[in-house]
Design a protein around this nucleic acid. Structure first.
Lengths: 158, 158
DNA sequence: ACCCTATAATTAGGCGCCAAACCGATGGAG
DNA sequence: CTCCATCGGTTTGGCGCCTAATTATAGGGT
């Protein structure tokens, strides 16, 4: 397995109106993102929390108060249906509780339980410890450059 | 939504043994990878093929001959169980066919159908046309630099 | 010949993700 | 005050991904 992924030498001949450099960027971005996500999942496995679950706990913790699923959906950039599912598993784990909204009866407010609040902290510490390791092969300057390039890309992709 | 994602100003105070630059890299890698994947999925949607299905078609096309699921699993870097599922949907779409291996009766050989072979080409063209667009905000030099940084990271992460 | 391990694929069960359909509640237009 | 468009959340059905268990075959060691 070569790293980074490279296109074949005759790429330009086969796909005349494509760009080899663009293809290489795209493939390696997908691959690297997947690798990072895999590391996050592995780091959280002992805690029995998924990356998505961990993010939801963090959002609730940051908010400092109960939130409707809708809010979580927007912060996570994920569909409401997905949030319903993630909340279901967090409820099963006892990390979160659903309560009716006091005035608007369409809404639900998601509360962090005591265990959920503690777990939110543990997740953050665990992930951030991991990140420092995973990015260990890049210098401080390289990290800044990478983040900058990714930002430029995101503005065009989002 | 800021781009790129940045950590809060007091990050270092809250997480003394973490690295803000590493966290920013990791978060933006995950986000950007996800955005790219989303673009691929959107581009392939009219073809009724998923990104994973498209990759499998490409692997079979490149091989130039029928392949066992095991081989596909290794190339895709994905579990054999997952390949079983992806093949099931490709079979449903009539793009692929399963045949018993002539000598080793444990194995199956996955054949591209005529439609599958044509689809493999269409998928490649479609995705590569997209990539040139998605990476449009980066210069040739920036793309090279990005691919290089991602490669350095992959060697450490894989 | 006969185990016994290793290998190939699938199945079972679970999570995350989506779009589309659905339902109750809301709140503005008439 | 009554509709009705909209909103928030869930449900349904489908795909991709995983691990663990299952089934069948292969192949080496005795």
């Amino acid at each position: 397995m070569e790293m980074p992924i490279r296109v074949s030498r005759d790429f330009a001949t086969i796909y005349p109106d494509a760009s080899a450099s663009a293809t290489e960027c795209a493939m390696n971005l997908a691959r690297t993102g997947d690798l990072v996500l895999g590391r996050v999942a592995s780091a959280l496995q002992p805690l029995e929390v998924s990356p998505a679950g961990g993010l939801v706990l963090g959002i609730l913790k940051d908010a400092g108060q109960p939130c409707p699923p809708n809010y979580i959906s927007e912060r996570l950039i994920v569909s409401r249906a997905t949030v319903t599912g993630v909340l279901d598993t967090l409820v099963k784990r006892g990390l979160v509780r659903r309560e009716p909204h006091p005035t608007d009866r369409r809404m639900v407010l998601v509360h962090l339980t005591k265990a959920g609040s503690r777990m939110a902290d543990t997740v953050r510490r665990t992930v951030h410890r991991g990140e420092a390791d995973w990015m260990g092969s890049l210098s401080e300057q390289e990290r800044a450059r990478l983040t900058e390039l990714l930002g430029k890309l995101q503005r065009h992709l989002a």
